[in-house]
Design a protein around this nucleic acid. Structure first.
Lengths: 185, 185, 185, 185
DNA sequence: AAGTAAACGAGACGGTACGTCGTGTCTTCCG
DNA sequence: CGGAAGACACGACGTACCGTCTCGTTTACTT
């Protein structure tokens, strides 16, 4: 087990045990039996380290073409819920968002790694639904996705409440019944 | 101008000028020509101070009964957008959410002060729309509000993008055309 | 029991209980059920207060003319030992000496109140011994007194050791046998 | 020039310039371009730091066997005078004595470092005088030394007066003529 | 007896120093 | 010779007292 692995897994362990604010580069180094410099050689600061540690093994968005767009849409929404309600994300994301405020490089890194890929995948699923006529031509796909993700994240952040399966389904059904449209161009 | 006022207004000024992470209790104290102890006498820590400073003069949710529920719904959504896109909130909210993670007392203080009141007011407006038949009896009002707020906040946080007037309108229209329903009970 | 008395006796009590360094004006005020300003109205600072509190009821130097100068000299030396080994003095004097270093007004107040009077009295006793021929005409009385007081204080300060009765007697006897002389003029 | 040296020499400089009471750990750190933690890593508090800084380069007690015990005794007394009247000691010792009152560990450190060694050396010189018959067999050497040191220190502390050469000589002569004896055992 | 002034308790206030902690850089020394 | 160990400069933390300053509220003296 090389240093990098030990550092990342220790980071996750400390994060889960002590939370983000009590996680310290020095603390992780000590616990991973690693010199601080070894950490700083690979990551410029705490949010970068945490982001790197958290990034992996998060739920992905399913993009299998099953022929049944309704089912696909629901599983996309579920995947979003799984993502934003995962323990790692709940513990680290708010703090990362905050720490990242001073560092636009890190900000885009975060957005690209956690958000953009999943949004692109989700977009493909919804675009397929449009092609199939399940959603109208002028559907504002991006807005739908942000509503879904936003609702999920919002409840997670402020109410410590995860969207349950049924609620996700009702939200998706309502959206499908009448999705937001793109501007008239 | 007494100490409390001087502290709060200095806090807002520093927040706007330097951002949350560079705001320091000692710095605010010095700039407000106040002893640090005077701040600590009234607020236990930085997030509490910032929250208190930020809390005031944020846009409220309009709740006038105009007879036109469609217009009312749109102005509620606009008010939410104004809230979550206000400079104060954008600068402070992510950091507050993060700092608050270790302190459930502060967490509920934040939720109660920034969220709950506005959600309750918004709820009344939507409930009126239900009474008038603009929205169906079994509308999941709370879910609608969290979708709206979530979408707005999500774009603000990750894309530094504020929902423009037209987008808000399209989102509301889609919701009204087919709102999410409450579970079958 | 008026304020002044309450303050002084509380000061002595705190001094005995907590030592000089842990004695604070605010603490004395609280314990004496007195406002801090009431203390500051009468004493400019902590050493002044403590000095005032300590000053009273300290052993005086006996100056009775008994006809037996040898006995008188020994009781003077004993009185010095009693003074510098008294609990009040041991607790407060070093700290007073230190605090007083920045304030020459207070320094002379201390010297005058604690030292000068006793030294003058002691001087009289030794001068009487000179008159009687127990000590030679050119005895350096002042140097004798400073040797005695110095030895006592020195042992008290550095060795936490009080000069016992026998040691005092032997010191005095040696001095009487061959006292230091004044410079040849 | 490493940190330790820089700290100690800065401490001495500040001590001489500003006095003990205005010497601050933070101030020394800033002036020595050193972090406060670096000081606290090596010294637990201000008196320990000052004691360590002051300890070096203080006059030592001469212990050369010249064959002339009278001259040796006088130079011992002179060395004591040089010690207790040295600027470093005058500035720091009273405050050290005071601060040390709460910390018996530091107290013994002080005593051992400043006093005991010199007293032991002085003792040897006087013991040699006893061997040579300059002083009687049953001389209370320790009491002599404490008288000398005490007189010197006493005048330095309370009268800001240093024992001049002649006075030291007269004090020593008187002592030699009739030293205090040990208890009859 | 009422009115007024002084002294008082309580404690907020601006400041200064404290001693601790974490950061990110740098050096030392061991395997 | 790469990496652990940790010293280092820096700066914020939250606490404790300082000495000053308002506040009301007793007291106790004047009228």
């Amino acid at each position: 087990m090389d240093a990098r692995e030990r550092i990342l897994s220790t980071t996750l362990a400390v994060l889960a045990r002590d939370g983000y604010s009590k996680l310290t580069i020095g603390g992780v180094a000590a616990e991973a039996r690693v010199g601080k410099a070894t950490i700083y050689r690979s990551w410029p600061n705490k949010p970068a380290l945490v982001l790197d540690a958290v990034r992996e093994e998060l739920p992905a968005i399913p993009n299998e073409d099953t022929g049944d767009s309704n089912a696909e849409l629901i599983s996309v929404a579920h995947a979003l819920a799984d993502l934003y309600c995962s323990q790692k994300i709940r513990v680290a994301l708010p703090a990362l968002m905050a720490d990242v405020a001073d560092d636009s490089g890190l900000r885009s890194f975060l957005t690209e790694n956690l958000i953009d890929g999943r949004k692109a995948t989700s977009y493909q699923v919804l675009a397929r639904a449009v092609e199939r006529g399940v959603l109208p031509e002028d559907t504002d796909i991006s807005l739908i996705l942000d509503c879904w993700a936003g609702a999920i994240l919002f409840r997670s952040l402020f109410f410590e409440e995860n969207l349950d399966e049924d609620t996700v389904r009702r939200m998706v059904e309502a959206t499908v019944a009448s999705p937001p449209r793109l501007p008239a161009a």
